[in-house]
Design a binder for these strands. Structure first.
Lengths: 383, 383
DNA sequence: ATCCCGTGAGAAACCGTTTTTTCATCACTG
DNA sequence: CAGTGATGAAAAAACGGTTTCTCACGGGAT
């Protein structure tokens, strides 16, 4: 109770040994008996903490003051080229690297972001995270990963950690565009962007353009001369399902094609694709000549069903999937043409926008739908 | 060239607007004309940076010195209970949270870890990362995610960032226990543990106990009375394949069962499982009554083949997989009994050990094989 | 020779904490 | 009543940087 604001007691005590250890090491430079007893044990060598070289050491080695050293290394202020160069060379030779935390302290900017996600096993968050991390790394910004398992308490804990660590901004990533994370965001002292998750009123969000992707896929099929293009997809409870269905319908309209009785909703599984395929294609008359599937699993199941029915893909039926989940798309026979949601790009754009917000640049609020990309493989024929 | 040690020029210029922005905000407290022009634009509200409350403000509000405030909040030093309580209440009412970076600066400990991984799309790293992140969060430690895409340059960049940010330790996670990451680790100034990756001589590593897991699976089958247990698995180029095969063989020996001609090596795909199943079970005589598969995909393909051949799972043939990849294990009919590598636990243990190393506790070097867990579903029958 | 100014570099203040040291106060002893 | 500890709290010194201010110096104009 006493202490409830701060680091947990566990953490607190955890910290003690190290601190005293370091202190001791600094005061007495290695007593002999200690060295002797430590020697034999087959323990992993703790690298000499060898107290990292500071700008102060660079300064004395270069024969200047720390102020001058700092200015020399940061290309600020005025000074003779010789001085600047001498300092830089000394810094290099000592392999000096400035302490980012010290620097953050004075700049009031940590060059650090938080990524809060509840998609622990998911195939969505990792690409987003990778794209984000890569783009940020290029700009000297690092990303804290916070895996909250749909557990509000864990969310709170991580949010507090992010506040304490003074991250410059926060990316909140989920697995469904129509669901928020299990957090009631407290008033945060930093800008936030949402990725692949419900975006609160007035917030900034990034999601793949599901409708656009579906349009892309359907138009591709129409462009290849297919006339009866059906849509087999996931459960109606997903917003993404409706968006993709809408894109499909719009593309059919645009191509002047009939909309054969609405989309076939079901589940995101191979099984559903397989069963729907059997049902749809065993009836002889008026068979579709193309299927746009709501995801790659469905497409995979569908292809299995078609193959079993003796129908050839793509000759008799062309198939497009959604997700570009390599595991399914590449493994399918024939390999699957599918829609890639560009999740890495999503993470990248979210990060860049967040940086803009941090820099105080004006950023339009609202949800951005990032374009998808059609990956053509062999399941549609064509060139 | 001039500047090659430090933040990139891009970063450098990026930082400027913010810095001057903050400065200005502090000097003049909001000029009216600025407020007016800013007002109408539909831009995302940058939360009032409202310069976070510092311990200094807490101190003056409580009528004590900062030293006293610090001691009061950290349960250090001696003081009257009244003073301590008063400070704590003031801190709470101002919702003060200490700046972790300032604190890190004096403690020489950032309570921060780096996670370097090249498994961007993979199903292996994310659970590891989640387990690590969760366990560390409980201890007030945050984890930087560094996604390097098998790109040495990116690896270098991220390593430098981790050094600059003064992480206390590093977790290096890969996708294969017999491959290192594309890094030639420079002499690092912090302890390192390796997870699911090749561990250099004298290092500390964590991998799942493949052999043990295989033994677990095979012994389970033997315990259910199966006598002819074959093993269908991935390519021989994987160390994990050999370990699992060895575990399988050992379990057969232990149960006094014959080893029918060695393991069947191939690839990690459903297709391979399917085809091998057809080949193996269409020949009439001396059919196996159980199969231990090297992963869940193979198991899934195998079950498809068995079903097609009219063989019942588990009545005629019992099947065990490896990975507990929900997508396959749960979706299989019947649901798959399989070996879980406990990747989250792996991440957790790696993190805890790393913390020990950071604390200077003696830690045995070498690779630890963490036990796997058998998840029993319906593909083996039994209770 | 004096004044002024531009220039390069050092001194000092600061960022937000913790920790050590110093200091004043007060209640006891002898 | 002076001397002695204990005690609570403040002052000061770190931690590793950046930035603002100040200053000494030298050259050119008067």
């Amino acid at each position: 109770m006493r202490n409830r604001f701060f680091i947990t007691e566990k953490t607190f005590f955890l910290a003690q040994p190290l601190i005293t250890f370091v202190k001791r090491a600094r005061l007495k430079p290695a007593r002999e008996d200690e060295a002797l007893t430590d020697n034999a044990a087959p323990v992993a060598s703790v690298p000499d903490t060898a107290s990292r070289v500071t700008i102060r050491e660079v300064a004395v080695a270069a024969g200047v003051s720390v102020a001058t050293a700092s200015k020399a290394l940061n290309a600020r202020g005025r000074m003779t080229p010789e001085t600047r160069q001498r300092v830089q060379e000394v810094a290099r030779s000592l392999s000096f690297r400035p302490n980012a935390m010290a620097r953050a302290l004075v700049h009031q900017r940590s060059f650090t972001l938080g990524l809060l996600t509840n998609d622990t096993y998911g195939r969505f968050t990792l690409p987003v995270a990778a794209g984000l991390s890569a783009a940020m790394a290029d700009r000297g910004v690092s990303v804290f990963l916070c895996a909250i398992e749909d557990d509000p308490e864990r969310a709170r804990l991580n949010l507090e950690a992010m506040e304490d660590k003074r991250v410059d901004g926060l990316v909140i990533a989920g697995k469904r565009v129509d669901r928020g994370l299990p957090i009631t965001l407290p008033p945060l002292s930093m800008p936030v962007v949402h990725v692949n998750a419900e975006c609160p009123e007035g917030g900034v969000g990034f999601v793949p353009d599901d409708a656009g992707g579906a349009h892309l896929a359907t138009a591709h099929l129409a462009g290849l001369g297919r006339r009866r293009i059906v849509h087999i997809t996931g459960p109606e409870s997903f917003a993404a399902v409706h968006l993709r269905a809408a894109g499909w319908r719009r593309a059919l309209d645009a191509a002047g094609l009939p909309c054969p009785g609405g989309a076939l909703f079901g589940e995101w599984s191979e099984r559903f694709g397989y069963e729907t395929g059997q049902r749809l294609f065993s009836a002889g008359a008026e068979r579709p000549d193309a299927v746009f599937c709501g995801n790659d699993q469905i497409a995979r199941g569908l292809i299995d069903a078609l193959t079993l029915l003796g129908l050839r893909v793509p000759e008799d039926v062309a198939v497009v999937g959604f997700d570009n989940w390599e595991l399914f798309a590449q493994a399918a026979r024939p390999p699957l043409t599918t829609v890639d949601m560009e999740l890495k790009g999503l993470g990248r754009e979210a990060g860049l926008t967040l940086l803009d917000m941090i820099d105080g640049k004006p950023v339009e609020r609202g949800v951005r739908r990032q374009p998808c990309r059609l990956v053509t493989r062999r399941s549609c024929g064509g060139p």
